[in-house]
């Protein structure tokens, strides 16, 4: 554990190891998302209640999972950055934020679109959609705060603090919104039926979720590598690297 943390201190080590790791994650993402898409769109049976509109679940749920996981990852990397001053972690947090916001937006959009055939309206103040909307605002806040500072170190630390504050609040927000929704709205049609799904329905969903996670890891690795080049461009080893690629 400690050895690993100490190794993370070296961007050069991370640059080398991520070069070996990232093709695997990209391949896994491509394979899983490809399989999940074909299976989910063409082969999974239609829902007996919602018909084919139920196929939105295969993008809605993975995006919603990822949206929450990315915020937690941002808080964890932020904490590691604050405690051990590991630059890689901050780079990762900075690179994750836009993807997290994009995932939140996908979850919101697909949820709203799904609402038309199921509820008959584009927007419903459903508990999940509402907490997703709040999550989007939290993401925008973190991104805006990071952009507002001129000094990179202050920006990193401020964004880390805000991500940690946000992650403590996310469960509180989630539970209070759930409570608020049940109070004001007698349970209508929940968007993802908790009832037992047949295997042909949930298997593609699982594949899509795994594919989205692989995509997240692959994209973060690639973008952190770019960020290393940007931030460490004065280091000798980065110069040598640029010489090699010529």
């Amino acid at each position: 554990m400690w050895a690993f943390i100490n190794k993370l201190r070296s961007p050069k080590w991370f640059y080398a190891i991520s070069a070996r790791l990232q093709p695997w994650f990209w391949a896994a993402a491509l394979l899983l998302i490809g399989t999940g898409t074909i299976w989910g769109l063409a082969f999974a049976p239609a829902d007996y209640q919602q018909g084919n509109s139920f196929r939105i679940i295969y993008v809605h749920v993975p995006a919603a999972f990822l949206a929450q996981s990315i915020f937690v990852s941002m808080a964890i990397t932020g904490l590691v950055f604050m405690v051990w001053k590991i630059k890689i972690c901050d780079m990762a947090a900075a690179m994750m934020a836009p993807l997290g916001a994009a995932m939140t937006f996908i979850a919101l959009f697909s949820g709203a679109v799904w609402g038309v055939p199921t509820w008959g309206t584009w927007w419903m103040w459903d508990a999940r959609l509402t907490s997703m909307l709040i999550l989007l605002f939290l993401y925008l806040g973190v991104i805006a705060l990071r952009g507002a500072f001129t000094s990179r170190d202050s920006a990193s630390r401020a964004a880390s603090v805000l991500a940690m504050v946000g992650v403590i609040n996310i469960p509180i927000i989630k539970y209070s919104v759930d409570w608020w929704y049940t109070l004001h709205q007698p349970a209508t049609f929940t968007i993802t039926g908790r009832a037992a799904m047949p295997m042909e329905m949930w298997a593609p969903l699982l594949i899509m979720v795994l594919g989205f996670y692989s995509f997240f890891i692959a994209l973060t690795l690639t973008r952190v590598r770019s960020e290393i080049l940007r931030r460490e461009s004065n280091k000798h080893w980065v110069r040598e690297l640029a010489g090699e690629t010529r």
Partner: peptide, 27 residues
């Protein structure tokens, strides 16, 4: 505290803080 050093922190402050206010508002 996060925005006190920024020259135009006012709007940003509300963006950061309002989502966190929601549980208090609900209850």
């Amino acid at each position: 505290a996060l925005t006190v050093g920024l020259s135009r922190g006012g709007v940003l402050l509300s963006l950061l803080v309002l989502p966190l206010y929601i549980p208090v508002l609900i209850f």
